[in-house]
Amino acid sequence: GNAVQEIMIPASKAGLVIGKGGETIKQLQERAGVKMVMIQDGPQNTGADKPLRITGDPYKVQQAKEMVLELIRD
């Protein structure tokens, strides 16, 4: 079955996860074999953390989460 996890991405790092024209998030999805969606909560909310929703095989979702956390670590 499918697992769904959401991680909060600091607004300052959201661009890093998505990448230029969505390149990075696309590569992450391909590498991890999961679906990732950045939940954009309207323009008034630009400074707030953005939830990144990861959907897929539970094991792969976990892997994907680690990859993203690695990416946004300072």
Rank of each mutant, 00 (worst) to 15 (best):
Q62M: 08
K20P: 11
G1Q: 03
Q63E: 13
K26E: 07
T24V: 11
V4E: 15
E70D: 15
Q44S: 10
M36Y: 01
Q27I: 12
A64Y: 00
P58I: 11
G19N: 03
G22S: 06
K26D: 06
K26Y: 10
L71N: 03
G19H: 02
G47H: 04
I39P: 09
I25E: 01
N45R: 12
G21F: 09
Q63T: 10
L71W: 04
I9Q: 01
A32K: 04
L16Q: 07
Q44V: 08
G15C: 15
E70K: 13
V17C: 03
G56C: 00
G47I: 04
M67W: 05
I54K: 00
V61M: 03
R53M: 11
K50C: 09
Y59W: 14
L69I: 06
D41V: 11
M67V: 05
P58W: 10
A32D: 02
T55R: 05
L52Y: 01
V37W: 09
T46H: 09
N45T: 11
R31E: 13
Q63W: 04
D74P: 12
K50E: 04
G33V: 01
A64K: 01
M36W: 00
Q5T: 14
P51C: 13
I18V: 12
L69T: 12
I72S: 03
V4D: 09
D74N: 06
K65I: 10
I9D: 01
V68T: 05
D57G: 04
V4S: 04
Q40Y: 10
K13C: 13
S12M: 08
I9C: 02
D41C: 11
G56H: 00
Q44M: 13
G33I: 00
Q62W: 06
G56T: 00
Q62P: 03
M38I: 10
K20M: 06
R31M: 07
I39T: 07
K13F: 04
E6F: 04
G1S: 05
E30V: 11
M36H: 00
V17E: 02
D57R: 07
E70I: 02
T55V: 10
R31Y: 04
L52F: 05
G56F: 00
P58T: 13
K35R: 13
Q62G: 11
K20I: 05
T24N: 08
G1D: 08
E70T: 09
G21I: 03
E66Q: 08
D74A: 07
E30R: 14
K50A: 11
K50Q: 14
Q5S: 11
A64N: 01
K60Y: 03
V37D: 11
V37I: 10
M8S: 06
V17M: 07
V61E: 01
M38D: 02
N45F: 14
V17P: 01
G15E: 15
A14L: 15
G33F: 02
T55H: 07
Y59M: 10
I18Q: 09
E66K: 13
Q63R: 11
D41R: 09
G1K: 10
L16M: 12
N2A: 15
Q40H: 05
G22C: 06
K35I: 05
I25D: 03
D49S: 08
T46K: 08
Q5Y: 13
M38W: 11
G56N: 01
K26C: 04
P51H: 11
A3P: 15
M38E: 04
A64G: 09
E6I: 06
V61T: 05
V61I: 07
M36E: 01
V4I: 15
V37T: 11
L28A: 02
P10E: 03
K50V: 13
R53P: 00
I7V: 10
A11W: 04
V68K: 02
P58L: 08
E70L: 04
K13P: 01
A48P: 10
I39G: 11
K60D: 04
R53Y: 05
T55F: 09
V4W: 06
V34A: 05
L69D: 14
G22Y: 03
G1N: 08
K13R: 04
G56A: 00
V4N: 15
I25N: 02
E23L: 09
G21A: 12
P51F: 08
E30S: 13
A32M: 12
L71Y: 04
L69Y: 13
G42L: 05
M38V: 13
A11M: 07
T46W: 05
P10Q: 02
Y59H: 15
D41F: 04
I18N: 08
M38Q: 03
L69W: 08
L16S: 06
G21M: 11
A3K: 15
V34D: 01
I54A: 01
Q40I: 05
V4T: 14
I7H: 00
I9L: 07
D49Y: 12
R31S: 13
E70Q: 08
Q29Y: 01
L71G: 03
V37G: 04
D49Q: 07
L16I: 10
P43L: 09
I54T: 01
R73A: 15
A14K: 08
N2D: 04
Q62S: 09
M8E: 04
I25L: 13
L52M: 10
G21Q: 11
N2S: 15
A11C: 10
G47W: 05
T46N: 08
D41H: 10
G1R: 04
G19S: 03
R53S: 05
K60R: 09
V68G: 02
Q44R: 10
E66P: 02
T24P: 04
N2P: 11
I39K: 13
M38Y: 07
A14Q: 14
L16Y: 10
V37N: 08
L52G: 00
E6P: 00
I54H: 00
I72R: 02
I54D: 00
P10L: 00
A14C: 14
D49P: 12
M67D: 08
L52R: 00
E23Y: 08
V34F: 00
D49I: 05
I7F: 04
V61C: 09
P10D: 03
K35P: 02
D74S: 06
D57W: 02
G15Q: 11
D74W: 03
Q27M: 13
T24M: 13
A32S: 12
P10N: 03
L28F: 04
E30Q: 10
Q63N: 06
L28Q: 01
T55N: 05
V68M: 05
L16F: 13
P58C: 06
Q62Y: 10
L71S: 04
I25Q: 03
L16E: 09
I18S: 07
M36K: 01
G42S: 14
P58S: 09
L71A: 06
I9E: 00
T46M: 11
K60F: 03
V68Y: 01
G22A: 13
K50L: 14
K65Q: 10
I25H: 03
I25A: 03
P10R: 02
E66S: 10
R53V: 12
G56P: 00
G42W: 03
L71F: 08
G15Y: 10
P43A: 14
Q29A: 12
M38T: 04
N45M: 09
G42Y: 15
P10G: 02
Q63G: 09
I72W: 03
K26N: 07
P51T: 12
V61H: 00
Q29L: 02
T55C: 09
G21W: 04
G33M: 05
I39W: 07
I7A: 01
D49T: 10
N45L: 05
M67K: 06
G21S: 11
V37K: 15
D74C: 05
A64D: 01
R53T: 13
D49K: 07
E70A: 10
A48Q: 14
K13S: 08
K26A: 09
G15S: 10
A11S: 10
N45H: 12
I25P: 01
E23V: 09
G47F: 12
K65P: 01
K65Y: 06
Q27H: 13
V4Y: 12
A64E: 01
I54N: 00
G56E: 00
V68R: 02
Q5C: 13
N45P: 09
A32G: 08
P43R: 12
N2M: 15
S12H: 12
M38F: 15
R73D: 15
D41M: 07
I18K: 06
